[in-house]
Computed example of a mutant assay.
Amino acid sequence: MRIQNVFTAIAATAGAAVLAAAPAFASGSPHFINNLTKVTSADLTSITVAFKEAGLESGSVETITVTAHLEATYQCVNRGGHNPDDPKKTVISGDYSKSGEFTAARNGNVTGSLTVTAPAASSVLDCPSGQTSVHTVSTWSNVSVTDADTSATVSVAGTYSFGKPVD
């Protein structure tokens, strides 16, 4: 009779341990909080997006990516700050992104920000002697935030334009 009580006690303890551990392995429904995921700054050369994702497992490491579409103009400018008579310019259009790893807090939330930058003018346009490649116009649009580990994603509304062509 004593052996049966020992086995019952072991089984009850094991069951309780499994039930107690279950919340540590459970995760909610990962999602970005819309009103806390937004563009916090933008200018000619970069756009910064702050975000908050909830419903994650405490301590999980999430790979989060901010992507933005950029249309930008780069021009050759002379020493006088003008575009020469034979203007040389390049317009680029494409999606640019920045990724980072973030660890979920005990409450299952990740809060952070990432900055996407435009290509450097010198890497886009090669100018003749006496002229400098200058990034003159940018429009950032179609901004999104994605968690590669959970597939949670959110779009951030807005279009952000800066600069003007050099004459």
Rank of each mutant, 00 (worst) to 15 (best):
S138G: 10
S151W: 06
E62L: 01
K164W: 09
P84W: 05
G81H: 10
V61G: 06
A22I: 15
L114D: 11
V110I: 13
F32A: 00
K98T: 12
G163I: 12
Q4W: 11
F32Q: 04
S113C: 14
A104I: 14
A21F: 13
D126T: 06
G80C: 06
V124P: 09
S46Y: 11
S58A: 15
T63D: 02
E101K: 14
I33P: 03
T117M: 02
T146Y: 00
S151V: 10
F51L: 06
R2M: 06
V134M: 01
D86C: 02
S144K: 12
T67G: 01
A17Y: 08
V66F: 00
S93C: 14
S113I: 08
T40K: 12
A50P: 08
S161N: 15
T45R: 03
A50E: 10
I10P: 01
D85L: 10
T8C: 01
K98W: 05
S122A: 14
N34P: 06
S93Y: 11
V166K: 07
V166A: 05
G81P: 13
K88Q: 13
W140D: 02
V110T: 07
V166E: 08
S41W: 08
I10D: 01
E101C: 11
F102Y: 07
P87C: 07
T37S: 09
T67P: 03
V137A: 09
A9D: 11
W140Y: 06
V143H: 08
S29P: 02
G112L: 01
S122N: 14
V6Y: 04
Y96V: 14
P165C: 06
F102M: 01
S41N: 13
G158F: 03
S58L: 12
G163S: 12
G80W: 13
T115E: 09
K38T: 11
V154P: 02
S122C: 06
K98F: 05
T40I: 13
R79D: 07
S93Q: 15
G80S: 12
